[in-house]
């Protein structure tokens, strides 16, 4: 906790994935009933929420509804999943291969670059300002072995690399950076933002604090409107990470946006976190990042490098697998039902 010395590299805690069993069930039925050997990429939806317990980070989760339904009955489900405070949707893409060999043969670097390019283009077109969820675009590759009911998969959370990396000059609990009055006002404004169906799942936002300590949360597209009235302005985001010394992954592409779009090199950010569903300024962090990349970095023509293949808990980049024969294999189900 507390402040970091000036000039340390700003390090981000990687995003972590979680897959509901229902996701694999629906993928299997899609594969069997609809897709066959068609292995074209499928748009999917992931969900995350701000960290809501001080001991564990939140995950980017894919669930049954992340995939399109295999029946053509267009359910109302897709509509419901929006506006939910505990399920902020993030666009993703799934590459499901037909064989284990093709899973391993996937050119992971170029796939990651391809997704990073979309993020980069959305930053430059302004799409990312209008719909900030695209900043957290993710990628999932998988191989579903429907004979053994085993699934091999790997997530990537593409992040545009600032080179040289941003430096962190200050990071502390929000309650220690804001005055008491400001902290109360920011909490109230954030709770209101999170309770409104219109904004509950908008994960990037502006916090502006007027001279009388009153805080307002605004959409990114209101950035111009926030200028010039002498307010404190912070760039806020839903931080899934529980750590007190590092901001979470979504800040990476947000910084790239802030620098590319508004040419801000000294960024005051708010890592928004909750305790049991309510804004918690003790867990939330306020930090200041200095961006030192050359001016040419933000030019559209060259997409920056990207990183983001998920690491396992030993810090290695490897794929994961899960075997669901016990709940999916008709033979085993028949045995257990006998």
């Amino acid at each position: 906790m507390g402040e970091k010395g000036s000039g340390s590299i700003l390090q981000f805690a990687p995003f972590q994935s979680s897959v509901d069993e229902g996701f694999w069930h629906r993928l299997s039925s899609l594969k069997l009933n609809k897709l066959g050997i068609d292995d074209s990429p499928i748009p999917i939806t992931g969900f995350y929420a701000p960290c809501s317990y001080s001991q564990v980070s939140n995950y980017l989760t894919v669930i049954t509804e992340s995939l399109p339904s295999d029946s053509d009955e267009q359910s109302s489900m897709a509509v419901i999943s929006h506006g939910s405070r505990n399920r902020c949707s993030v666009p993703g893409i799934l590459y499901n291969t037909n064989t284990l060999e093709s899973f391993h043969a996937i050119d992971k670097l170029s796939l990651l670059k391809k997704e990073a390019k979309k993020i980069w283009e959305d930053i430059h077109s302004g799409e990312a300002v209008d719909d900030s969820r695209v900043l957290s675009r993710f990628l999932l590759i998988s191989f579903a072995d429907l004979k053994k009911w085993s699934f091999r998969y790997w997530f990537a959370f593409p992040a545009l690399v600032l080179d040289p990396p941003a430096t962190l000059v200050d990071l502390r609990p929000a309650s220690k950076w804001f005055s008491l009055q400001e902290a109360e006002s920011v909490s109230a404004a954030c709770n209101e933002w999170r309770n409104s169906r219109l904004t509950a799942d908008v994960p990037f936002f502006l916090v502006s604090i007027a001279a009388d300590s009153q805080a307002t949360i605004r959409h990114l597209k209101d950035w111009e409107a926030c200028q010039g009235d002498g307010q404190k302005l912070l760039f806020g985001f839903y931080d899934p990470c529980h750590l007190q010394n590092n901001p979470g992954w979504p800040l990476r592409n947000f910084l790239a946006l802030i620098f590319s779009r508004w040419n801000i090199k000294s960024v005051r950010f708010l890592c928004y976190k909750e305790n049991r569903g309510y804004a918690d300024m003790g867990l939330s962090l306020v930090g200041k990042a200095l961006i030192t990349v050359p001016q040419g970095w933000k030019e559209n023509r060259r997409v920056p490098d990207a990183v983001g293949w998920e690491l396992n808990n030993k810090g290695r980049t490897v794929s994961r697998s899960i075997i669901l024969a016990k709940s999916m294999d008709p033979t085993m189900l028949a045995v257990s039902a006998a």
């Binding site: 590299i9 700003l10 390090q11 981000f12 805690a13 990687p14 972590q16 391993h104 050119d107 992971k108 670097l109 690399v161 600032l162 990396p165 941003a166 750590l243 590092n246 990476r252 990183v307 983001g308 293949w309 808990n313 810090g315 290695r316 980049t317 490897v318 794929s319």
Partner: peptide, 20 residues
Amino acid sequence: YDEPECLIETDPATLQSTYL
């Protein structure tokens, strides 16, 4: 199946420690 050939991401801005 560790595929070191393409996925050593040496990125100083990724928190490498036992973040999990």
